[in-house]
Design a protein around this nucleic acid. Structure first.
Lengths: 335, 335
DNA sequence: ATGAAAGCGCTAACAG
DNA sequence: CTGTTAGCGCTTTCAT
């Protein structure tokens, strides 16, 4: 198997110097049209492809590589973000290196290190819980970084793309309160997670605004995954005074809560931050907070490229809108 | 902002030559333990990180980069595959470049080209429909390639990881036939897609084996997305002699079919190739064919690394098992 | 309009 | 055990 052809190989075939090949490949001027044609002919003949690693080694050149760290690419929320980033990156002639931290800060740090060794031009990160001192200027050496979904506290602050968690949650819970519910339970995941905390704040905002006092015993936090959420739901339904509606702070929790209702054959209206298939087919009304995760990725990538282009001055925080929809049977009222 | 430190910078601080730094960084012998310590000290002081692009420029060195092309990273099926690949790649010290073809052959080709320019060591691809002459040895120059989910016909053939589509579909449809159904409809997507064709073959296998003659008018193909599948379902239910059960060849089609049943308030048992949330909570029994997409990715990556390690001889086709589960109300029988 | 030389950061081969 | 030299493929600078 023959060695991959270089510019020198092309140059030899075309009877020109490597520099002229370089000019043709990069559409630089001046090159005589006939020379250009000869070179292009030779390129086609050999199947030459420029070596990006060699190119980007030169000072002043860039790698055309963007790095992404999320908790788990297998999670559709994260992969939608990745897709949005990829869209913009592709349009800008960049490729995306994707990695998954498993939500572990040590692995996150290691991945960022690996990405830096590959000379990424910029980094987009859905930060794990924990300290991010390795997002400091000293560690990053001026690498532009954009945070998505969760803020990260650094000096100076980073460009950030968030959802309107608090407002979306408030809207969804308000729809329950306005239907007459006064005992709305909450099932949340890991209590230290930013998005969950914001959504719970929104729950409280709604109560305050609707002048309903929430019952603290109905607020359940720290549940990982569907199975735990299911138990939380059955526990709530087994209370002497069970809730008449429930707010799930995310998708997975909602699925667990629904499994719990199904198990107890006791259905109460559900509000949930996240949309999901078949929400409209359930035996109880579902109020969903929907958003565009792909768009989050796009916006993050656009912030990143703006900074690479030197267009950004101060770090920006963009908060993306969410929408609320009623799914399933129309009547939200208390049974 | 100071320039990123190089091995020479480290060498100067540690009072050694660049080659010695290289030896330390690569854990090569022999290096005097004291020298090694001095160098490590200097590395820490400067925050030195080896430049992977420069390293991999040397002949005999590799880029530690793997490329992936799927139809759409935002699709959870593909992103699960990506996650599986990433797992193995990370364990092997490799990073993954992910790209989405939008199922367009021209874009697929362009992405492969871009990946090759970045000197990927191997490529994993969920191939689009269409000719793949650009997966020929001439184009790839010996680059190892693994196909996932769909085979691709090249000479020589590629390593391939598939699901047991035909058998899984047969099992699911058999459960309907054994419950007494004789009019089982099929809703399928793009008819040229390999997986759909295999699953329909499984549908016919089941009928043959159960000695039931399928009604060709109940076989509907070429539907894109949920909305079209929903229409296909309502059309079927509106027939003078509607089906008593339906087989959906994938997830999205199943959601559409369920929406159709919901709209007509006419529920019939569903079999579907793919598992999904809330399948157990619907008003009709659901038979799902489940599988592990992350594992598909892992196996693909393992085939790739086996080839990079020079361990593989002939191209392999691995067919991964699927499992069938009953969800929802227990009774599959004809209404 | 084109080419020669130098060097990006790293490591293989060879000296010492 | 350590250092020197050379060169991977490309592009910048400066000649021609």
């Amino acid at each position: 198997m023959s060695r991959r052809p270089t510019m020198h190989d092309v140059a030899r075939i075309a009877g020109v110097s490597a520099k002229t090949v370089s000019r043709v490949v990069n559409n630089e001027t001046p090159v005589d049209p006939l020379t250009r044609a000869r070179v292009q002919q030779a390129i086609a003949e050999l199947g030459f492809r420029r070596n990006e690693q060699a190119r980007s080694l030169r000072p002043g050149q860039t790698s055309a590589l963007i790095g992404l760290v999320t908790g788990d690419l297998g999670n559709p929320f994260y992969s939608a973000i990745a897709r949005g980033i990829e869209d913009v990156a592709h349009r800008r002639g960049h490729l995306l290196l994707t990695t998954s931290s498993d939500e572990r800060p040590d692995r996150e740090r290691q991945l960022i290190d690996a990405l830096l060794q590959h000379n990424i031009e910029g980094l987009i990160i859905v930060p794990t819980l924990g300290q991010h001192d390795y997002l400091s200027p000293a560690f990053l050496r001026g690498l532009p970084v954009v945070a998505v979904d969760r803020p990260v506290h650094t000096h100076p602050p980073l460009d950030t793309v968030l959802l309107d968690n608090r407002h979306g949650a408030a809207l969804a819970v308000t729809s329950l309160l306005q239907a007459g519910h006064t005992r709305v339970a909450v099932i949340d995941g890991e209590s230290a997670v930013f998005t969950g905390a914001e959504r719970i704040a929104g729950y409280h905002d709604a109560h305050r605004q609707q002048k309903v006092t929430p019952d603290a015993t109905l607020l359940r936090q720290g549940f990982h995954g569907e199975t735990q959420a299911e138990t939380a739901m059955t526990d709530l339904l087994d209370l002497p005074a069970p809730p008449t509606a429930v707010f799930a702070t995310n998708n997975r929790i909602a699925i667990g809560a629904l499994n719990g209702m199904h198990r107890r054959k006791h259905w109460i209206p559900l509000a949930v931050f996240d949309d999901f298939d078949l929400a409209g087919m359930l035996p109880t009304p579902v109020t969903v907070v929907a958003y565009d995760a792909v768009e989050m990725g796009r916006q993050a990538a656009e912030l990143l490229f703006a900074r690479l282009d030197g267009l950004s001055a101060d770090p920006q925080v963009r908060t993306l809108p969410v929408t609320v929809h009623q799914r399933g049977p129309g009547n939200l009222a208390v049974n």
